[in-house]
Design a binder for these strands. Structure first.
Lengths: 241, 241
DNA sequence: AGCTGGAATTGATCTCCATCAAGGCATTGC
DNA sequence: GCAATGCCTTGATGGAGATCAATTCCAGCT
């Protein structure tokens, strides 16, 4: 962590696959070099924890590849997944002392981590970064509010259908051209049935039954339990509520 | 809206009751004067709509006094309230073309409204404002995720208890000294039973029954249906989950 | 006072999903 | 091969809260 080490560290950002999509996108080369200095790459295995709910907010990170879940729990241990973090997304809680939720890798994951205090300082000094972070946070707030509609008002079928629609969208990085008309799209779910249930506020059994129902109705195919083929997206959308 | 009119407009911000708590708090006098020029005060009656879900994002606003609800609806009209906006809070969706949720006044409300495009431009040019907005948005995201825990995992009793705890907190402007030990605190609910139900993902009947139950158990008193007295906050917290 | 209309409460019944319980089906290690 | 383990699926049952249906309450009006 000393100056010499930092100075010698190669600039990972230049070759970063999410360089143009993450919050660093609007930074110029000089700024990126500075950011590169305070960050470091880290690999997470499935199940490995990056942040612990209620603990001091030490780290923030960009996700380079892989998927993380964000979760909170009640006092007696019931867990609710409150966010899924995909490549180019930001994770962690800047400008606060404690982390309001846990973050855990669902797949093999590469993140670009920063000491929260370093990041806070950098953000305050670089408005373009802060602006990107604001846009991202506003989008995430919109997403979590749509999620609240799902949790508050939708039945099991609508929840599972919505989950599949949303997940296929996120996994394709927001591209809308796929599966819009007729071509089937294939999803590789990064979540187990239990985790899907924790996302949707349901039980594992109910989620499983809905998948089976969709399969029987010809709305999806399941080559394996984590691989979902959607032959006709509109049929799925019709069950979204 | 012409220049002369704007120049003559008195600087409302100087006397603003939320001047030090809203996102304008860190602006200097000159910046506030500029912001004052592009904003205007507006009064909303209970039930009056400020933003329409899915419409163009024309306005953003600060709430000076009163309470607003934010809501989204499914295609077939089921409504979910996804946010409550109290004095000094910000409402609206900067940096986007459409408003993702509706906003409607629950009480007599004073807001300080801006054309979204004016506000966006001002924010980009004034990092201190954008920083405040970011902090607020991050806090709101935390809040909405806790809300997701409520909607996804809590039973009716826990939801209503959590709602009362949260509401008393927000109405007191975040002060923690009240009701902490023994003194009873009194809440004047800005929401009808139906609206509380829409916040909590329950029906009006279930909410009503929970209130009755709490009253019978001596955890709350109800001088009127919208006035709640909490003699012992810890007894309520114990039912929070 | 008496009337009126919207909101809240209370009761009776039903339904969807949670819960409980078993069995299927892969993968891993011996 | 075949136990063992973990995940998923399927079936049977029960219960929390939704739904349907009356009252009751209360503020505003005449």
């Amino acid at each position: 962590m000393d100056g010499i080490d930092l100075a010698q560290r190669p600039n990972f950002c230049q070759a970063c696959t999410i360089r143009n999509r993450a919050i660093c996108a609007d930074l110029d080369d000089e700024e990126v070099a500075l950011l590169n200095r305070i960050g470091r790459k880290r690999h997470l295995q499935p199940g490995e924890q990056l942040l612990w709910e209620g603990e001091a907010a030490i780290l923030v990170a960009n996700v380079v590849s892989g998927v993380l879940k964000l979760s909170t729990a009640t006092a007696d241990g019931r867990e609710q997944i409150v966010g899924l973090v995909y490549p180019s997304d930001f994770v962690g809680r800047p400008f606060a002392e404690t982390t309001p939720y846990g973050a855990e890798a669902l797949t093999d994951t590469e993140v670009c981590v920063f000491q929260r205090k370093d990041f806070d300082r950098f953000a305050l000094e670089h408005p373009r970064l802060e602006h990107k972070l604001l846009e991202r946070t506003l989008t995430e707030l919109d997403r979590s509010r749509r999620w609240m509609l799902l949790l508050g008002k939708m039945n099991a079928q609508e929840r599972v259908a919505s989950f599949l629609v949303e997940t296929s969208g996120r996994l394709q990085g927001g591209r809308k051209d796929i599966g819009a008309s007729g071509e089937p799209s294939q999803i590789e779910l990064p979540l187990s049935r239990q985790q899907i249930a924790n996302v949707l506020g349901l039980t594992i059994e109910t989620v499983s039954r809905q998948f089976t129902q969709f399969r029987k109705d010809g709305i999806i195919e399941m080559p394996s339990s984590r691989t979902i083929v959607v032959p006709d997206r509109s049929a799925l959308l019709a069950r979204t509520g």
